[in-house]
Amino acid sequence: MRGLWQTLSKRDYDGIADWVTDDCIYLDVPVGPAFAARGPADIVKRLQVGWGGLAAYENHDGLLVADDDGNVMYEHTETWTFASGEVVTLAFVSVHRVRDGRVCLWKDYWDYGAIMNNAPASWVESLATADTSWAYDATGDV
């Protein structure tokens, strides 16, 4: 799974499809299952809502734990550098369910307040007009 995170750290959006299944559900747990994304193309659109306006993004490796049933937990941090100069480092735990070597369920746990209280107002305001064509209600799926 570290390969997925190396791909993400490079913001290699085309490469994400190599790591997730066609029916993969991506969910930011603090936001809730009504705003999940499903499938590689929509996961990319979802990620671009947060990262699209960043000057830089970097994932920092952390603890990776997996079991024999394809469940993976990854504790890591992400540094977001905004175009206006603010830098925020966020703690994450990502939970993946893996099927045939690819992620089929991806749930990110993070502190909503940490990003909303430290991101520039322009980035927060951009969320209100962001493309949400990716939104998938995964309430019954996760």
Rank of each mutant, 00 (worst) to 15 (best):
C24A: 15
Y74W: 11
T21I: 04
V87Q: 15
G70D: 08
V95T: 14
A41G: 07
I115E: 10
W80V: 03
D14Q: 14
G15N: 09
D12M: 09
T132M: 12
T7G: 05
V87N: 02
V142Q: 13
A17M: 04
E75Y: 07
G50F: 15
A66T: 14
T21K: 06
R46G: 00
D141E: 14
R46N: 11
D69Q: 14
S9L: 10
L64Y: 08
D100Y: 00
N117F: 04
T81Y: 04
W19R: 07
A128V: 06
A130I: 06
T129C: 00
V49F: 02
D137P: 05
R11A: 11
A34M: 12
V49S: 00
L63G: 00
A121T: 13
G62C: 05
A138V: 03
G3S: 15
L8E: 12
R46K: 12
S133V: 05
M116Y: 10
W110G: 07
W134A: 03
E86V: 08
G85V: 06
W5H: 15
G32A: 07
T89L: 03
E125T: 11
D108C: 05
D69K: 15
P40W: 06
V31S: 11
G3N: 13
A34P: 00
V124Q: 08
M1H: 08
P30K: 14
D67Y: 08
L105S: 10
L127P: 01
V65G: 01
V31T: 14
V103Y: 03
Q48Y: 01
L27I: 11
V20T: 08
A66R: 15
G39E: 10
W80G: 01
L47R: 03
K107P: 02
V88A: 03
S9R: 13
D111G: 05
E125G: 07
A138R: 06
L105C: 01
D23T: 12
V31R: 14
A41D: 13
K10C: 15
W51N: 10
L27K: 07
V65W: 04
W51L: 13
R99G: 01
Y136G: 04
E75G: 07
L47D: 06
V93E: 04
D28R: 10
F92C: 11
V49L: 09
H60C: 03
R38G: 04
V93D: 02
V98C: 02
Y26M: 10
V65Y: 05
D14T: 14
A128C: 02
V20S: 05
N59M: 06
D67E: 08
G113M: 09
D22F: 01
Y13R: 11
V142H: 11
H96R: 04
Q6P: 00
H96E: 11
T129P: 01
M116E: 01
Q48G: 02
D23H: 12
T129Q: 12
A41Y: 01
Y26E: 14
I115K: 07
V98P: 00
S122C: 05
W80E: 08
D23P: 00
L27Y: 01
Y112K: 14
F92W: 10
W106D: 13
A41N: 11
D18W: 02
N118D: 03
G39L: 06
I115G: 01
S122R: 12
G32V: 04
D69I: 07
H60Q: 12
A34E: 12
